[in-house]
Protein backbone atom coordinates (compact mmCIF):
# COMPACT_ATOMS: atom_id res chain seq x y z
CA UNK A 1 0.00 0.00 0.00
CA UNK A 2 1.42 3.37 -0.94
CA UNK A 3 1.65 6.24 1.51
CA UNK A 4 -1.57 8.25 1.47
CA UNK A 5 -1.58 11.78 0.16
CA UNK A 6 -3.98 14.65 0.42
CA UNK A 7 -5.37 16.86 -2.31
CA UNK A 8 -5.01 20.62 -2.13
CA UNK A 9 -7.52 22.40 0.09
CA UNK A 10 -10.99 23.03 -1.33
CA UNK A 11 -11.66 26.62 -2.33
CA UNK A 12 -14.79 27.06 -0.24
CA UNK A 13 -17.42 25.51 2.00
CA UNK A 14 -19.46 24.45 -0.99
CA UNK A 15 -16.37 23.09 -2.73
CA UNK A 16 -15.76 20.90 0.31
CA UNK A 17 -19.31 19.60 0.07
CA UNK A 18 -18.99 18.99 -3.67
CA UNK A 19 -15.79 17.02 -3.14
CA UNK A 20 -17.43 14.83 -0.52
CA UNK A 21 -20.34 14.28 -2.85
CA UNK A 22 -18.24 13.30 -5.84
CA UNK A 23 -15.99 11.14 -3.68
CA UNK A 24 -18.90 9.17 -2.25
CA UNK A 25 -20.62 9.08 -5.62
CA UNK A 26 -17.48 7.34 -6.87
CA UNK A 27 -17.93 4.78 -4.12
CA UNK A 28 -21.29 3.92 -5.57
CA UNK A 29 -23.50 5.98 -3.29
CA UNK A 30 -26.73 7.49 -4.53
CA UNK A 31 -26.30 11.21 -3.94
CA UNK A 32 -29.61 12.27 -2.48
CA UNK A 33 -30.88 15.74 -1.78
CA UNK A 34 -31.82 16.91 1.73
CA UNK A 35 -35.03 15.59 3.18
CA UNK A 36 -37.69 18.28 2.99
CA UNK A 37 -38.56 18.28 6.68
CA UNK A 38 -37.05 19.73 9.81
CA UNK A 39 -34.84 17.14 11.50
CA UNK A 40 -32.42 17.36 14.40
CA UNK A 41 -29.79 15.13 12.79
CA UNK A 42 -28.95 13.77 9.36
CA UNK A 43 -29.42 10.23 10.66
CA UNK A 44 -33.15 10.84 10.89
CA UNK A 45 -33.50 11.19 7.11
CA UNK A 46 -35.46 8.08 6.09
CA UNK A 47 -32.59 7.27 3.70
CA UNK A 48 -30.56 6.35 6.75
CA UNK A 49 -32.82 5.39 9.58
CA UNK A 50 -35.38 3.42 7.58
CA UNK A 51 -33.03 2.05 4.94
CA UNK A 52 -30.79 0.65 7.66
CA UNK A 53 -33.67 -1.74 8.35
CA UNK A 54 -34.59 -4.71 6.24
CA UNK A 55 -32.49 -7.05 4.09
CA UNK A 56 -31.81 -4.89 1.01
CA UNK A 57 -28.39 -3.44 0.20
CA UNK A 58 -28.20 0.35 0.10
CA UNK A 59 -25.67 3.12 -0.40
CA UNK A 60 -26.46 6.79 -0.16
CA UNK A 61 -24.88 10.11 0.72
CA UNK A 62 -26.47 13.52 1.17
CA UNK A 63 -26.30 16.86 2.88
CA UNK A 64 -28.94 17.35 5.52
CA UNK A 65 -29.73 20.66 7.19
CA UNK A 66 -30.21 20.01 10.90
CA UNK A 67 -32.29 22.17 13.15
CA UNK A 68 -31.61 22.23 16.87
CA UNK A 69 -33.65 25.10 18.28
CA UNK A 70 -32.02 25.00 21.72
CA UNK A 71 -28.53 25.39 20.22
CA UNK A 72 -29.38 28.66 18.48
CA UNK A 73 -27.36 31.67 19.74
CA UNK A 74 -28.71 34.72 17.83
CA UNK A 75 -25.68 34.52 15.55
CA UNK A 76 -23.46 35.60 18.44
CA UNK A 77 -21.55 32.39 19.16
CA UNK A 78 -18.75 31.58 16.71
CA UNK A 79 -19.26 27.81 17.10
CA UNK A 80 -22.91 27.17 17.80
CA UNK A 81 -25.79 27.26 15.39
CA UNK A 82 -29.46 26.46 15.53
CA UNK A 83 -29.37 25.45 11.87
CA UNK A 84 -26.37 23.73 10.35
CA UNK A 85 -25.39 21.09 7.84
CA UNK A 86 -24.43 17.50 8.23
CA UNK A 87 -23.05 15.29 5.51
CA UNK A 88 -24.36 11.82 5.88
CA UNK A 89 -23.12 8.57 4.31
CA UNK A 90 -24.65 5.14 4.71
CA UNK A 91 -23.25 1.93 3.25
CA UNK A 92 -25.23 -1.24 3.75
CA UNK A 93 -23.65 -3.64 4.32
CA UNK A 94 -20.55 -1.80 5.42
CA UNK A 95 -17.63 -2.73 3.17
CA UNK A 96 -14.64 -4.27 4.97
CA UNK A 97 -12.47 -1.28 4.06
CA UNK A 98 -14.90 1.40 5.26
CA UNK A 99 -12.30 2.95 7.59
CA UNK A 100 -9.95 3.39 4.63
CA UNK A 101 -12.73 4.81 2.49
CA UNK A 102 -13.54 7.28 5.24
CA UNK A 103 -9.90 8.34 5.71
CA UNK A 104 -9.55 8.82 1.96
CA UNK A 105 -12.55 11.16 2.07
CA UNK A 106 -10.63 13.32 4.55
CA UNK A 107 -7.59 13.35 2.28
CA UNK A 108 -9.95 14.32 -0.51
CA UNK A 109 -10.88 17.56 1.29
CA UNK A 110 -7.27 18.52 1.91
CA UNK A 111 -6.45 16.99 5.29
CA UNK A 112 -2.86 15.75 5.05
CA UNK A 113 -2.48 12.54 7.04
CA UNK A 114 1.28 13.12 7.37
CA UNK A 115 0.93 16.28 9.44
CA UNK A 116 -2.40 15.77 11.21
CA UNK A 117 -3.25 13.47 14.06
CA UNK A 118 -6.33 11.46 13.15
CA UNK A 119 -7.82 9.23 15.81
CA UNK A 120 -10.75 6.94 16.34
CA UNK A 121 -11.95 7.55 19.90
CA UNK A 122 -14.61 5.30 21.40
CA UNK A 123 -18.06 6.82 21.16
CA UNK A 124 -21.08 4.62 20.99
CA UNK A 125 -23.95 6.26 19.26
CA UNK A 126 -27.49 6.04 20.51
CA UNK A 127 -30.73 7.66 19.44
CA UNK A 128 -33.47 6.51 21.82
CA UNK A 129 -36.10 8.39 19.81
CA UNK A 130 -35.78 5.95 16.94
CA UNK A 131 -34.70 3.06 19.16
CA UNK A 132 -31.33 2.98 17.45
CA UNK A 133 -27.81 2.33 18.64
CA UNK A 134 -24.49 1.35 17.25
CA UNK A 135 -20.83 1.08 18.13
CA UNK A 136 -18.15 3.25 16.67
CA UNK A 137 -16.07 6.30 17.27
CA UNK A 138 -15.80 10.02 17.21
CA UNK A 139 -13.11 10.75 14.70
CA UNK A 140 -10.68 13.36 15.93
CA UNK A 141 -8.40 15.47 13.80
CA UNK A 142 -5.87 17.24 16.02
CA UNK A 143 -8.28 16.97 18.93
CA UNK A 144 -11.26 18.24 16.93
CA UNK A 145 -14.22 15.95 16.48
CA UNK A 146 -14.74 15.94 12.70
CA UNK A 147 -17.06 12.96 12.25
CA UNK A 148 -19.14 10.35 13.92
CA UNK A 149 -18.54 6.84 12.64
CA UNK A 150 -21.06 4.16 13.58
CA UNK A 151 -21.85 0.55 12.82
CA UNK A 152 -25.62 0.35 13.37
CA UNK A 153 -26.65 -2.57 15.53
CA UNK A 154 -30.30 -1.79 16.18
CA UNK A 155 -32.86 0.53 14.63
CA UNK A 156 -36.44 0.85 15.80
CA UNK A 157 -35.53 -1.56 18.59
CA UNK A 158 -34.79 -4.30 16.00
CA UNK A 159 -31.45 -5.97 15.27
CA UNK A 160 -30.28 -4.92 11.83
CA UNK A 161 -28.98 -7.34 9.23
CA UNK A 162 -26.91 -6.64 7.27
CA UNK A 163 -25.09 -4.04 9.35
CA UNK A 164 -24.79 -0.54 7.93
CA UNK A 165 -21.79 1.69 8.33
CA UNK A 166 -22.83 5.29 8.93
CA UNK A 167 -20.68 8.40 8.70
CA UNK A 168 -21.72 11.85 9.82
CA UNK A 169 -19.54 14.84 9.02
CA UNK A 170 -20.28 18.06 10.90
CA UNK A 171 -19.72 20.23 7.85
CA UNK A 172 -19.29 23.68 9.40
CA UNK A 173 -16.92 22.41 12.04
CA UNK A 174 -14.95 20.39 9.54
CA UNK A 175 -14.75 23.37 7.18
CA UNK A 176 -13.65 25.70 9.98
CA UNK A 177 -10.86 23.27 10.63
CA UNK A 178 -9.83 22.88 7.02
CA UNK A 179 -9.87 26.64 6.40
CA UNK A 180 -8.37 27.58 9.77
CA UNK A 181 -11.31 29.86 10.55
CA UNK A 182 -12.31 30.60 14.16
CA UNK A 183 -15.76 32.00 13.44
CA UNK A 184 -18.25 29.98 11.44
CA UNK A 185 -19.71 33.12 9.86
CA UNK A 186 -16.34 33.88 8.27
CA UNK A 187 -16.24 30.64 6.28
CA UNK A 188 -16.05 31.25 2.54
CA UNK A 189 -19.34 29.85 1.30
CA UNK A 190 -18.44 30.07 -2.38
CA UNK A 191 -15.04 30.70 -3.96
CA UNK A 192 -13.62 33.93 -2.46
CA UNK A 193 -12.15 34.66 -5.90
CA UNK A 194 -15.53 34.54 -7.58
CA UNK A 195 -17.43 37.55 -8.79
CA UNK A 196 -19.79 37.65 -5.83
CA UNK A 197 -17.86 36.14 -2.90
CA UNK A 198 -20.21 35.07 -0.14
CA UNK A 199 -19.36 34.17 3.41
CA UNK A 200 -21.34 31.75 5.57
CA UNK A 201 -22.54 34.82 7.46
CA UNK A 202 -23.82 36.43 4.24
CA UNK A 203 -25.94 33.38 3.69
CA UNK A 204 -27.08 32.48 7.20
CA UNK A 205 -26.40 35.16 9.84
CA UNK A 206 -29.75 36.91 9.55
CA UNK A 207 -31.49 33.57 9.54
CA UNK A 208 -29.77 32.58 12.81
CA UNK A 209 -30.82 35.86 14.43
CA UNK A 210 -34.47 35.62 13.46
CA UNK A 211 -34.79 31.90 14.07
CA UNK A 212 -33.24 32.34 17.52
CA UNK A 213 -35.85 34.95 18.36
CA UNK A 214 -38.53 32.54 17.19
CA UNK A 215 -37.07 29.59 19.09
CA UNK A 216 -36.61 31.36 22.40
CA UNK A 217 -39.14 34.21 22.44
CA UNK A 218 -41.83 34.06 19.82
CA UNK A 219 -42.80 30.44 19.37
CA UNK A 220 -46.44 30.05 20.39
CA UNK A 221 -46.33 27.22 22.88
CA UNK A 222 -50.07 26.63 22.97
CA UNK A 223 -50.18 26.35 19.21
CA UNK A 224 -47.18 24.03 19.25
CA UNK A 225 -48.83 21.82 21.83
CA UNK A 226 -51.84 21.51 19.55
CA UNK A 227 -49.61 20.74 16.60
CA UNK A 228 -47.84 18.10 18.57
CA UNK A 229 -51.08 16.34 19.38
CA UNK A 230 -52.14 16.63 15.75
CA UNK A 231 -48.91 15.14 14.43
CA UNK A 232 -49.17 12.37 16.97
CA UNK A 233 -52.65 11.28 15.99
CA UNK A 234 -51.92 11.61 12.25
CA UNK A 235 -48.81 9.45 12.61
CA UNK A 236 -50.73 6.82 14.54
CA UNK A 237 -53.53 6.82 12.01
CA UNK A 238 -51.05 6.37 9.14
CA UNK A 239 -49.41 3.52 10.94
CA UNK A 240 -52.81 1.91 11.42
CA UNK A 241 -53.37 2.33 7.69
CA UNK A 242 -50.13 0.46 6.99
CA UNK A 243 -48.22 3.47 5.60
CA UNK A 244 -44.97 3.68 7.54
CA UNK A 245 -43.28 6.36 5.40
CA UNK A 246 -45.77 9.18 5.98
CA UNK A 247 -46.26 7.88 9.54
CA UNK A 248 -42.52 8.40 10.02
CA UNK A 249 -42.78 11.92 8.51
CA UNK A 250 -45.31 12.86 11.15
CA UNK A 251 -43.11 11.39 13.85
CA UNK A 252 -40.34 13.69 12.59
CA UNK A 253 -42.73 16.65 12.66
CA UNK A 254 -43.76 15.81 16.21
CA UNK A 255 -40.12 15.54 17.19
CA UNK A 256 -39.29 18.97 15.82
CA UNK A 257 -42.35 20.55 17.42
CA UNK A 258 -41.28 19.02 20.72
CA UNK A 259 -37.77 20.51 20.24
CA UNK A 260 -39.34 23.93 19.77
CA UNK A 261 -41.48 23.60 22.90
CA UNK A 262 -38.41 22.42 24.78
CA UNK A 263 -36.29 25.37 23.60
CA UNK A 264 -38.92 27.72 25.02
CA UNK A 265 -38.24 26.14 28.42
CA UNK A 266 -41.93 25.46 28.67
CA UNK A 267 -41.80 21.96 30.09
CA UNK A 268 -40.61 20.44 33.34
CA UNK A 269 -38.16 17.55 33.27
CA UNK A 270 -40.96 15.12 34.06
CA UNK A 271 -43.12 16.35 31.19
CA UNK A 272 -40.05 16.32 29.02
CA UNK A 273 -39.60 12.61 29.60
CA UNK A 274 -43.24 12.04 28.72
CA UNK A 275 -42.90 13.96 25.43
CA UNK A 276 -39.77 12.06 24.49
CA UNK A 277 -41.60 8.83 25.20
CA UNK A 278 -44.47 9.82 22.90
CA UNK A 279 -42.14 10.76 20.03
CA UNK A 280 -40.24 7.53 20.54
CA UNK A 281 -43.42 5.48 20.27
CA UNK A 282 -44.29 7.15 16.97
CA UNK A 283 -40.82 6.80 15.43
CA UNK A 284 -40.35 3.25 16.59
CA UNK A 285 -43.80 2.24 15.52
CA UNK A 286 -43.19 3.54 12.00
CA UNK A 287 -39.73 1.98 11.83
CA UNK A 288 -40.98 -1.41 12.96
CA UNK A 289 -43.77 -1.39 10.42
CA UNK A 290 -41.36 -0.35 7.64
CA UNK A 291 -38.96 -3.17 8.57
CA UNK A 292 -41.74 -5.71 8.53
CA UNK A 293 -42.96 -4.60 5.13
CA UNK A 294 -39.42 -4.58 3.71
CA UNK A 295 -38.94 -8.16 4.84
CA UNK A 296 -42.22 -9.08 3.18
CA UNK A 297 -41.30 -7.32 -0.04
CA UNK A 298 -37.91 -9.06 -0.12
CA UNK A 299 -39.39 -12.49 0.57
Amino acid sequence: MTAPTAREKPASFQDLILRLQSYWAAQGCAILQPYDMEVGAGTLHPATVLRALGPKDWRAAYVQPSRRPADARYGENPNRLGHYYQFQVILKPNPANLQDLYLNSLYEIGIDPMVHDIRFVEDDWENPTVGAWGLGWEVWCDGMEVSQYTYFQQVGGLDVFPVSGELTYGLERLAMYVFGVDNVYNLPFNDPASEVPLSYGDVFLQNEREQSAFNFELADVDMLQTWFTGCESQSKALREAGKPLPAYDFALKASHVFNLIDARGAISPTERQAFIGRVRDLARGAAELWAKQEEERAA
Partner: peptide
Amino acid sequence: MRWGRGELRWVRP
Protein backbone atom coordinates in the same frame (compact mmCIF):
# COMPACT_ATOMS: atom_id res chain seq x y z
CA MET B 1 -20.95 -5.79 17.63
CA ARG B 2 -21.59 -7.44 14.28
CA TRP B 3 -20.54 -5.94 10.97
CA GLY B 4 -21.22 -6.41 7.26
CA ARG B 5 -23.08 -9.63 6.61
CA GLY B 6 -21.26 -11.55 9.32
CA GLU B 7 -22.54 -13.14 12.50
CA LEU B 8 -19.25 -12.98 14.39
CA ARG B 9 -19.13 -10.56 17.29
CA TRP B 10 -16.06 -8.56 18.23
CA VAL B 11 -15.53 -5.20 19.84
CA ARG B 12 -15.08 -3.57 16.41
CA PRO B 13 -14.66 -5.26 13.03
